[in-house]
């Protein structure tokens, strides 16, 4: 365990000068090194491009596409794919192509909100616990445990089940955060526990730096590697959880739409109207797949030893 942690710590980049832990110039080269390593991971690079395209499709697409995602009486009911409606239309008259863009947008919004918010909260929580150790650590981590023992999807379902109608994308995202920050906290605490024993932290402490300064300026930046990897993977988890929630009826509620909601609505249409079933499903798979590969690439890039093996 300790071996791995120190490896992660190494990969996070042990600054030579404790007084100037993350200097601008040094930081850039650090990123440059990681970026160079990342670029060598072909699957991760392809994934990054794909994900960028999907994101553009989701956020920029609706600006240029002729139809909105809502019902429009000019749209024919239940039409198959055509140039005008590449993914066909729904019964009530939605353009499925526009819905897919909107759905991807909402799913990504949920996923990124969950990832960012959980990471901020979880990383801080874990770093504080790891830094102080002892009783503080024990209590803080037991609190995190409480949130870990309830599976994400059932936790959200039991709350969402009752705020139905009010379950907008940010409500879903916030409730998901509530039950996913603890995972990050655990990872970060583990890293911080080993980091804090290192010389540069000792030096900072000896120089009289305040705890908050040590945590936010020294510990967290140096734990960036594992944090980024965990956060990346959380995005994929969030997309899938949202989809699963939609399937059992507790995800984002109409008139809004998400990818999960679209697949759920079309699950009986897989063979009768496949154009309703496959695009949103494939998009979910693509988002998760690319994110997992990017996570993999990041892990390799932040972990020099494995990259060496690869070359």
């Amino acid at each position: 365990m300790s071996e791995m942690q120190s490896r992660i710590a190494m990969s996070g980049g042990g600054p030579e000068n404790p007084e100037q832990p993350v200097a601008k110039g040094g930081d850039l080269t650090q990123i440059q090194i990681i970026w160079r390593r990342f670029r060598r991971h072909r699957a991760a690079m392809i994934s990054l491009v794909l994900l960028a395209l999907i994101t553009a499709f989701a956020f920029l697409g609706p600006l240029v596409w002729q139809w909105g995602h809502t019902v429009n009486s000019d749209i024919p009911s239940n039409a198959g794919p055509s140039w005008d409606h590449p993914f066909g239309t729904t019964k009530q008259g939605n353009d499925v192509f526009a819905q897919t863009m909107r759905g991807a947008q909402q799913s990504l919004k949920v996923a990124f909100t969950v990832a960012v918010l959980s990471t901020v909260v979880g990383a801080t929580w874990g770093a504080v616990a790891g830094y102080y150790r002892g009783r503080v650590d024990a209590i803080m981590m037991r609190i995190a445990d409480i949130f870990l023992i309830i599976p994400l999807i059932v936790a959200v379902a039991s709350i969402n089940g009752n705020v139905r109608g009010g379950a907008t994308w940010y409500a879903v995202a916030l409730i998901m955060c509530l039950f996913s920050w603890a995972t990050i906290a655990r990872v970060v605490r583990g890293v911080v526990l080993s980091l804090r024993e290192q010389e540069f932290i000792e030096a900072a402490r000896a120089a009289g730096a305040k705890a908050s300064r040590i945590i936010f300026r020294h510990l967290l930046p140096n734990a960036a590697g594992p944090i980024i990897v965990a956060a990346t993977l959380l995005i994929a988890v969030a997309v899938l959880t949202e989809a699963g929630l939609s399937f059992i009826g507790f995800g984002i509620q109409p008139p809004d739409i998400s990818l999960g909601k679209m697949v759920e609505g079309a699950r009986t249409a897989a063979f009768t109207r496949p154009w309703l079933f496959y695009p949103p499903g494939v998009l979910i798979v693509l988002i998760c797949l690319t994110i997992n590969f990017i996570g993999d690439g990041l892990r390799d890039a932040l972990d020099p030893r494995q990259t060496m093996v690869r070359r």
Partner: peptide, 29 residues
């Protein structure tokens, strides 16, 4: 880093990326 490794890795990643209910529908078919 053999072909087999990449294939198994890809299958694993694919399985991780699929919503369970989507997968279930396909398996049922």
């Amino acid at each position: 880093y053999s072909k087999l490794d990449y294939t198994l890795t890809f299958i694993g990643f694919l399985a991780l990326a699929m919503p369970t209910f989507w997968l279930g529908a396909l398996i049922k078919e």
